[in-house]
Design a binder for these strands. Sequence first.
RNA 1: GGGUGGGUACCGAAGCGGUCAAACGGGGCAGACUGUAAAUCUGCUGGCACAUGCCUUCGGAGGUUCGAAUCCUCCCCCACCCA
Length: 410
Amino acid sequence: MSERRTFPPVAEQMDIIRENAEEILPEEELVRKLERSYEKGIPLNVKLGCDPTSPDLHVGHSVVLTKLRQFQDLGHQAILIIGDFTAMIGDPSGRSKTRPPLSLEEARKRGQTYYEQASIILRSDHLRIVYNSEWLGKMTFDEVIRLTAHYTVAQMLEREDFAKRYKAGVPIGLHEFLYPLAQAMDSVAIRADVELGGTDQRFNLLVGRTIQEKYGQEPQVILTMPLLEGLDGREKMSKSLGNYIALTDPPEEMFGKVMSIPDELILKYYRLAVFAPAEQVAHLEKQLKEQRINPRDAKFQVAKALVRRYYGEEAAEAAAAHFERVFVKKAIPDDIPTVTVAPGTTVGLVELLTQHQLAASKSEARRLIQQRAVSVDGEKIVDIHATITLEHPVVIKVGKRRFLKLQPSA
RNA sequence: GGGUGGGUACCGAAGCGGUCAAACGGGGCAGACUGUAAAUCUGCUGGCACAUGCCUUCGGAGGUUCGAAUCCUCCCCCACCCA
């Protein structure tokens, strides 16, 4: 830990750090910190707090994780803070009222899966993982009151989210005011030099600066990364909205999801999800602008690049081929879910669809049939009373994406 | 503690005694088209039966009525204003 590290020249570091960053506040302070670290051979403590409530990491998370990775690559110390304590209290964003507070144990467990998924992007050296219950859990009420005295209600209401909700008459729990402060205490506890976050974290990160100073520390520099919109192209990518690409999504799924983003997002995904080099992004942008490339092909390229990033070249090729086959040529994919059935039995199509989860209810199954969404062995079935006698293998297709093969057992 | 306005389907939001499974928008699903699971357009979107029909749903529990999301009573929850 105490060995002297060496770093690239500061200017070079700054170029990398600035890449894709939305905001660095204050930038001169970062330069000073980097210079000092360079001279003394001491890495900066770069903090990223994470909320383990939803254990599925997605491409939205990857944006800021990638930035952290860059710091690691430069030789700095990444500190991943698992917010097990904060998760235990509940969710601060006010968005998901359904999110139940977790037990410490549960929060820890999810923190573990969070870490496992984060290590898809992070390297394992230059990495420290800490749980914030370690210090937050030890604070006495007295200490908490002292902490809250450092901030005012008016200051809290400066946060856009709070201001908006207050104005709209949406409840704000008192404990939510404690979140930025708790997060700030994390910075104090680990003596953060830099804290990363999405632009929506701006306020919280800034509170960290103030509080660190109150506790006699040099304030951290904050670096925010742009938020990546989800598949709908409208809202921020998030699990609760279901508009996300999980880091663990299988290649084909990942590919298809990229293909479903609105055209306007192509470049943004290339930049932030793929983290493609600036020149390549610029190149693609130019091609699109001059209409020298079809947006579909551009998206195809981005989809492939994303799969390549997580699964490698071969998987990328395979996923692309799969998409081409299933959606462009509308053929049947080669590995589809198969169920074996007793041969010779005759079943109603409606029952078949509901039994195998191709439709949620019989009413839905009928609707789908009436809407010409169902085909059996490539033949559209429009009759809701249709039955199938299972003698040969039969492929049922519902909509564009749902397939099922029925295999009569020999 | 007092006052006012609210709680409606996945979400937002109309409805304010029958014509309400509940307008409209979003989301979702499907179809057409296409350059793709983009965009656009069209349709569908509680369940069961599909022929009429039946059952469950409008914060909760009761009640009035031939009939309630709509009226009454009590209760729970939320926001705002005043203390």
